[in-house]
Design a protein around this nucleic acid. Structure first.
Lengths: 252, 252
DNA sequence: ATTCCGTATTGATTTCGATCAGATCGATGC
DNA sequence: GCATCGATCTGATCGAAATCAATACGGAAT
């Protein structure tokens, strides 16, 4: 029996999300909502704009920061994909998260004042770098920005406690795919046709499963007609069905 | 062979941590460091003090807030013990965390704007209630307070990613005990003689293990001479040995 | 094309912790 | 004291996912 095949995702689906204008921000900027929506005047916007540093490109496999580096900045992904990983004393890696364009990396370093993980790009990536002392000082003058930082931190808290739950392997994988789709959709990409730029090993590690288990579950989901998958190109064929599997992981 | 028995913890070990003076805070207050240490003047301290509402006592089993309640406030534990739990659509409970005196409950509600979990007291408890709009407004004028809120959020992020890792049951339990001891010590209690006010079921649920497994591991740790345990009274006999087991969970 | 090598899939077996079942302990009330 | 009930502990069995092992795929270099 033939299994469904996905169409190739649009190669333009992952551009650098920056419209380049002087006092406006990347359309997907993690802070744009805090500023533009709150109706800040040009002076405030300029303050924020000035403290941003556009960095990149980083090629796949490069480090943005490493464990124990002193915490100085948070990084908003402009384009590309990043993972954060910890390495325990025995050398076991643990993927903490994947970050898409418009999302912010490094918030978990605030308390320890050192990055508690490595941030590694999985495909060519660009970032906005925000000095943390500068952005928190500005946040004191821009309540909307302060609020946005609180929200980003709290959101990330919610993310981790989803995966911290104990769930069957199939539920985890379904939740992972559903979540990725939703996050991509939130950033204006297709929520149903996407590219898994991370390896199966990384996915498995993130989900606290063996790579073989992830592989088996992907084929099972494909046989059930919920997804189409060829290599790293994924299409969600039945979002409702997949969401039903993910329900116990995500809905609370 | 006789197994070691703990001495009873000092019953005074868990007082209401409030010295009662007008413009000073509970000695264990989660925000005291942000204020007193930063040398704020009386006016600022009074602002913070005014927005605090002392609530309690709550008896064991009472709810501070419930899932889906609109988010209005964060709660600092003054005395007692709280757990936060989610309930999935099938009714499975999931303990997200335990909160000791001096710690803050409710931060994960900022982003969704509704509490994503129930907060339930496990023993008689008192709280300081901080209206979130009020405290974040004040934070904009008190950089030290803003910083403290960021740190609390970031700290909680670090906590959850510890338990999110995949670790052997014994490592989890060892890490749990070690962590509890350290957190109690940080609040001025004994770090080696403590009372597990939560049930074995709650501990197991928090660690994503079966209650039977937790029980077995406690006896194993006792047989190894690492802990003494009688009912809910625990003494850490060999902090280094226990820490070695916990090392892969905690050290990164 | 062909080789090479890292990545992914598929199959066989093992293992750790869950589940099922029963015993024991401890606090409370009669 | 004695009965009762919930919580905890201990033992026996089961099962989902890990591990071990081998094969297949796919892109890059020759």
């Amino acid at each position: 029996m033939p299994t469904p095949r996905p169409q190739r995702p649009d190669p333009r689906a992952n551009p650098i999300a920056d419209d380049g204008s002087e006092v406006r921000f990347c359309s997907t900027c993690a802070f744009s909502g805090a500023c533009v929506a709150a109706g800040y005047d040009k002076a405030h916007l300029r303050d924020l704009h000035v403290l941003v540093e556009h960095i990149g490109p980083f090629r796949a496999g490069e480090h943005i920061f490493r464990t124990h580096d002193p915490f100085r900045a948070i990084y908003a992904v402009r384009a590309g994909l990043v993972k954060t990983v910890t390495v325990d004393p025995e050398g076991n890696e643990q993927v903490l998260g994947f970050y898409l364009p418009g999302e912010v990396v490094g918030l978990n370093a605030i308390y320890p004042e050192h990055y508690p993980c490595d941030a590694v790009t999985l495909e060519t990536a660009h970032f906005c770098r925000f000095s943390f002392p500068a952005i928190s000082a500005l946040a004191a003058r821009m309540p909307g920005l302060q609020q946005q930082l609180f929200r980003l931190l709290s959101k990330e808290l919610g993310m981790t406690s989803l995966l911290a739950g104990d769930h069957a392997a199939e539920e985890r994988v379904a939740a992972f795919v559903t979540d990725l789709g939703e996050r991509l959709a939130a950033q204006g990409f297709s929520g149903t046709r996407l590219r898994l730029s991370m390896s199966r090993v990384d996915i498995a590690n993130y989900l606290r499963l063996a790579a073989e288990t992830v592989s088996r579950i992907f084929t099972r989901l494909r046989d059930q007609g919920l997804i189409a998958l060829e290599g790293r190109d994924l299409e969600i064929l039945d979002p409702a069905g997949l969401g039903a599997l993910a329900r116990n992981v995500r809905e609370r």
